[in-house]
Write a protein that binds this DNA or RNA. Structure first.
Length: 894
RNA sequence: GCGGAUAUGGCGGAAUUGGUAGACGCGCUAGACUUAGGAUCUAGUGCCGCAAGGCGUGGGGGUUCGAGUCCCUUUAUCCGCACCA
């Protein structure tokens, strides 16, 4: 008797299959994006490109990459022209630190890391168009980053038109023109979106670098290295992003982004509407301007507070208090932000000895200096209304200042109301004003509610020239320079006479010079200050100049990289206009939540500027944004909570023990980290189970946006599925020329429908289970038609492309299936002749009753009442009510 | 404190507009085949109970014929922001 085919022949040899198809795709340039812009169906799918670190790819990367790859492959089969590129955010600190340590040029290590990343990504079978690969450190790329910087420099924001305009169109007010060209220049400078100015900046002594506010954690440490940062005054490039605050806020409304991300951006922009009010000072010819969102509470303002750093602080302080105030300013300056936050509950402050006049009632109110008022927000000074602001209330209580209630609170709690009226509690909600009228000043809001009061108070301020309506943003200007070597050089020359000029477009790129030493200076000097010849320039008149030695931050390159993919080899322009118009906006952008605010906000800012200048065709760059969840891993800890590295853990039955001490350990879920020894390397997964298994498991783990733990057993599970699918679908003995039966056709079309809608909705986990259900069905049947097997190969292709191509070839096709049309769902296979009604009693399902679908409501009820099982559950009673929802459910109410 | 999210078996997770809770996978149990293997196949598997049956979606309350899903309230965890006037 003949033996069966040897088992090994039917083994799922993923190594051979995957290598073969990866080679095929590469050699045939299968995923080259057609430059044909005539196809009206286009789809731009973007990943957040990685920083190519020395550690290589991490299993978190392929999660988002697989998701976008599935969408890309699916859209191609749906007839879309798909742009799906990849590149490298390759400027960055680690390469520079490595250069400092070893003397190796950062580009060497960067290129090596890029090679590793590229190899690893190719081994996952992602369908990128590699001809469009970009690298932010490539002069042909950063030439255009510099070019955009010049645009920013030459643009101002016109609040009347609510858009950015060319600086040449800025009209300098006549009174400034008459003051001379210096005043004119200053005015223009004050409007440019990029400007060079003194800035108090965070300085990390360990990294020897300036950090953006956003890079300093709340505990006052540098996000990158953990060392405490300090304040330093340096000349820096700044970007006037806050002028775009409203535009950035408004733009969010129309975007298909997760609410969490939109809220984070709104919060960060932090728009608040209120008024600026001028307070005169008793016995001094100065005014203090404050910002308040509650001008209606002016009658309750019983004192004022200036931030310690406020410019008038020392000036207003009376002699007798000067010593105290100076000591306080000094102490506040030494406090880190952490201390200020920590002491939030225990407010500190010192009296200046001076009084201001409350314009509402002409009362003298004391001026205090306290660090609970921040320099960087509003005007750095406040009017304090302790009765209606919790912070002012705390401060007033501590320093026994007057608390003047001016609103009868709207609350059902009589105790609260009494306490507020007596000034024993602060009230920030609504109510009706009391004690808010003064015949001398002419302001009277008594009896009004909060909204009316605010409106009337602003009107009064403006009529009396005491203040005006004002909008404030938390968003501050963006500190845009770093004392680094490994970044884009600024196309800027500082002349000996103090003038600043920017390079012309034809002088770009300004290439980063070669250096021997990459260390920054100790006092905040960039490494480029050692660049010798590169540094010094002389113009045609013999005027000497020095190039800017700072470089741009890492954000710069990633602010616009999605635009360069559109036309990456263009040497004459940033991109071709027609191509930009065709491909933009990005239809789907997937990446990590860590970029929810900064990268996405900066990038939207640049994009809006480019839009206003007519360089791009859309106001927003990313139509749909989706943040993938973090991939976590199991870790182990002792009863006392000490973490134990994975290599010290052994499993006995379902419990975990320390290999050396024998102590029982608790399994927890934690971020992957070197110290916990729980990092999963994608290379290990692909070599053990293959790329298709990695892809499938990453999608099967759970919803894309959820944080979920990696479990090696789960990879084994999907590997088992792929092997099972291979054994069935790759064995031509199972493929017949006969027609499928109804159940198989139904199962197939259900699967097509499910996979299609799951991809559209980014519900990849349930699509994988649909494949499994179908495969389980056909393996039970034993045979399947060639048509059905081919259809299955096509719908499997986005998720497991290597295996799908293999099936396709086995079924006699010589070409890739990447551009085969996506199978059509035939609804007629999905309709059923009968429906199995769940029959419930008081909402509890008891049995099922199969009835033809065309039976009407009355018929269903009749059939259900006649069923003998119904009699049993009714126990002889007559049902009070019978609910029949055709095609859904039968419910008896007893 | 503010904003956002999450909570379902031993585990990861399913569940159109309120309509059969636990799909699919892991794990576990039993069996088949076997060059007794971490392969494959078959059956079972929410919990309690011999069974009939009862109980079950973090807790409490409500709306409804019917609630994982809607409303109120509460707890826990995670993420972001944090004296922003």
């Amino acid at each position: 008797m003949k033996k069966f085919k040897s088992a090994t022949k039917m083994d799922y040899n993923f190594k051979e299959i995957e290598k073969k198809w990866q080679q095929y795709w590469e050699e045939n340039k299968t995923f080259k994006t057609p430059d044909d812009t005539s196809n009206p169906k286009k789809y731009y799918v973007l990943d957040m490109y990685p920083y190519p670190s020395g550690a290589g790819l991490h299993v978190g990367h392929p999660e988002g990459y697989t998701a976008t790859d599935i969408v890309s492959r699916y859209k191609r089969m749906k007839g879309f022209n798909v742009l799906h590129p990849m590149g490298w955010d390759a400027f960055g600190l680690p390469a520079e630190q490595y250069a400092i340590q070893t003397g190796t040029h950062p580009s060497i290590i960067t290129n090596k890391n890029c090679d590793t990343f590229r190899r690893q990504i190719k081994e996952i079978g992602l369908s990128y168009d590699w001809d469009r690969e970009i690298n932010t450190t490539d002069p042909d790329y950063y030439k255009w980053t510099q070019w955009i910087f010049i645009k920013l420099y030459n643009t101002w924001f016109d609040f009347e038109q609510n858009k950015g305009r060319d600086i040449k169109e800025l009209i300098v007010p006549a009174d400034l023109v008459s003051k001379g060209s210096e005043a004119e220049k200053e005015y223009i400078k004050s409007k440019r979106l990029a400007y060079y100015d003194n800035a108090q900046v965070w300085w990390c002594n360990s990294c020897k670098i300036v950090c953006a506010n956003e890079e300093v954690l709340t505990d006052g440490s540098h996000e990158k290295c953990g060392h405490t940062v300090e304040k330093k005054n340096l000349k820096q490039w700044m970007l006037r992003i806050h002028h775009y605050g409203d535009r950035l806020l408004q733009g969010l409304d129309g975007l298909d982004w997760q609410d969490g991300v939109k809220d984070m951006q709104r919060n960060w922009i932090g728009k608040s509407v209120g008024a600026e009010v001028d307070f005169t000072i008793d016995g001094l010819d100065e005014k203090i301007k404050v910002f308040t969102t509650r001008p209606d509470t002016l009658f309750g303002a019983t004192y004022m507070v200036l931030a310690p750093e406020h410019e008038l602080t020392k000036k207003i302080t009376v002699k007798e208090q000067l010593e105290n105030v100076e000591a306080y300013i000094k102490a506040a300056g030494l406090k880190s932000d952490l201390d200020r936050t920590d002491l939030a509950k225990d407010k500190s402050g010192v009296f200046s000895g001076r009084y201001a006049i409350n314009p509402a009632n002409n009362e003298k109110i004391p001026i205090w200096i306290a660090d609970y008022v921040l320099t960087g927000y509003g005007t750095g000074a406040i009017m304090a209304v302790p009765a209606h602001d919790t912070r002012d209330f705390e401060f007033a209580q501590k320093f026994k200042l007057k608390i003047n209630c001016i609103m009868d609170p709207e609350t059902p709690d009589e105790d609260v109301r009494k306490a507020v009226l007596k000034g024993e509690m602060s009230w920030t909600e609504g109510g009706r004003y009391i004690n808010s009228s003064n015949s001398q000043s002419g302001l009277d809001i008594n009896g009004l509610d909060k909204a009316e009061g605010i409106a009337k108070a602003i009107e009064w301020l403006e009529d009396n020239k005491l203040g005006e309506k004002k909008v404030n943003f938390k968003l501050r200007d963006w500190l845009f320079s770093r004392q680094r070597y490994w970044g884009e050089p600024f196309p800027v020359i500082h002349w000996e006479d103090g003038e600043i000029s920017l390079l012309e477009e034809n002088e770009l790129p300004l290439i980063l010079p070669e250096l021997e030493k990459f260390e920054p200076g100790n006092s905040g000097e960039s490494p480029l200050s050692n660049a010798g010849d590169w540094l010094n320039v002389v113009d045609e008149n013999g005027r000497k100049g020095r190039r800017e030695t700072n470089t741009m931050p890492q954000w710069a390159g990633s602010c616009w990289y999605y635009l360069r993919y559109i036309d990456p080899l263009n040497t004459g322009a940033i991109f071709d206009k027609k191509k930009e118009k065709y491909w933009m906006p990005v239809d789907l952008y997937i990446g990590g939540a860590e970029h929810a605010v900064l990268h996405l906000l900066y990038s939207r800012f640049w994009h809006k500027v480019l839009f206003d200048l007519g360089i791009v065709s859309t106001d927003e760059p990313y139509t749909k944004l989706f943040n993938q969840g973090m991939i976590l891993a199991f870790a182990y800890e002792t009863q006392t909570g000490a973490k134990v590295g994975g290599d010290f853990v052994e499993q006995k039955e379902s419990k975990f023990f320390h290999k050396e001490t024998g102590e029982e350990l608790k399994q927890i879920v934690a971020k992957m980290s070197k110290s916990l020894k729980n990092v999963v390397n994608p290379d290990d997964v692909t070599s053990k189970y293959g790329a298709d298994s990695l892809r499938l498991y990453e999608m099967f783990m759970g919803p894309l946006d959820a944080a979920k733990p990696w479990d090696d057993k789960g990879v084994k599970g999907v590997f088992g599925f792929l092997a099972k699918a291979f054994r069935f679908f790759a064995n031509t003995e199972n493929i017949t020329e006969e027609e499928d039966d109804k159940e198989t056709l139904k199962a197939l079309h259900q699967t097509i429908k499910k996979v299609e809608s799951d991809i559209e909705n980014l519900h990849f986990n349930t699509a994988v289970s649909a494949y499994m259900i179908f495969t389980n069905h056909v393996t039970k049947k034993g045979k399947v038609s060639k048509k059905t097997a081919e259809t299955f190969a096509l719908i499997l292709a986005p998720f497991a492309p290597h295996l799908a191509e293999e099936f396709w070839q086995i079924y006699g096709h010589n070409d890739t299936l990447s551009y085969e049309p996506w199978p059509q769902v035939n609804e007629s296979y999905l309709t059923e002749a009968s429906f199995e009604y769940p029959v419930s009693f008081n909402g509890k399902m008891r049995f099922k009753l199969e009835l033809p679908v065309d039976v009407d409501k009355a018929g269903v009820e009749k059939a259900a009442l006649e069923d003998e099982r119904t009699h049993k559950w009714l126990e002889g009673k007559t049902p009070k009510k019978v609910i029949v929802v055709p095609g859904k459910i039968i419910n008896f109410v007893i």
